[in-house]
Computed example of a mutant assay.
Amino acid sequence: MGLNVENLKMNFKTIEEFKSFKEYGLEELSMLEELHISMVEDNTSSPFYGIYYGDRLAARMCLYIREDKLNLIPTSEKFLEIWKLEVLPAFQHKGFGLMLVEFAKSFQLPIMTKPRVKSQSFWEKMNFVPVSDTSTRLIWDPNAVDTQIIS
């Protein structure tokens, strides 16, 4: 079965699919509010991406393009932010999270995220490093020479 990361449509079917994640996930990973806001604002492009296993949404992430107004990243004026990433329990440890992160990395922009729900080691395996010595945010920068902390 060929698995692909795809842009999720902003519609009522997606809302129903997101509800299955809320059953398993923590409130901080719920994306229903973001989906409702996007539908109300009538955005034509969705910040939501997912992987279907058969006809079931097995993994999802919320991915935003941000401008680096604070100059956190010396190598780029823009970066991606993975706001939330979640894989349903039945599909964990099967590479779905990796597929979502690799999809984001394919844009060749720095990626920032804030680890949630004990996910720090996952992000470290994906070569994300702290933005600074005091920050809880992590970054992956395709332009960084090495994986040292970016100051």
Rank of each mutant, 00 (worst) to 15 (best):
G2K: 10
G2R: 15
N4G: 03
V5E: 05
E6Y: 03
N7H: 03
N11G: 12
N11W: 06
K13I: 15
I15N: 13
S20L: 12
F21Y: 00
E23Y: 09
E27V: 10
E28I: 14
L29A: 09
M31P: 08
L32S: 02
E33H: 14
E33Q: 13
E33T: 13
E34W: 02
H36V: 10
N43A: 10
T44G: 00
S45R: 13
Y49A: 03
Y49V: 10
I51D: 02
I51R: 09
Y53W: 14
G54A: 15
L57W: 10
A58G: 10
C62I: 05
L63Y: 10
I65K: 05
R66V: 07
K69A: 13
L70K: 11
L70G: 15
N71M: 15
I73E: 15
P74N: 01
P74M: 01
S76Y: 13
K78F: 14
K78H: 15
L80V: 00
I82S: 10
W83H: 14
L85M: 08
L88T: 04
H93Y: 15
G95D: 03
F96R: 09
G97V: 03
G97Q: 06
G97R: 06
L98E: 07
L98H: 07
L100Y: 14
V101K: 10
E102H: 09
K105L: 00
K105W: 05
S106M: 02
S106T: 06
F107W: 02
Q108T: 02
L109V: 06
M112L: 13
R116S: 07
K118A: 11
K118R: 12
S119R: 00
S121V: 13
S121R: 12
S121H: 08
F122S: 01
F122N: 02
W123R: 04
N127K: 13
F128E: 06
V129C: 08
P130T: 06
P130A: 08
D133L: 09
D133C: 14
S135P: 01
T136C: 11
T136G: 14
L138V: 12
I139Y: 11
I139N: 05
I139P: 05
W140P: 02
W140Q: 03
D141L: 06
P142E: 04
P142N: 05
Q148L: 09
I149T: 10
I149S: 11
I149D: 11
I150A: 05
S151A: 12
S151M: 14
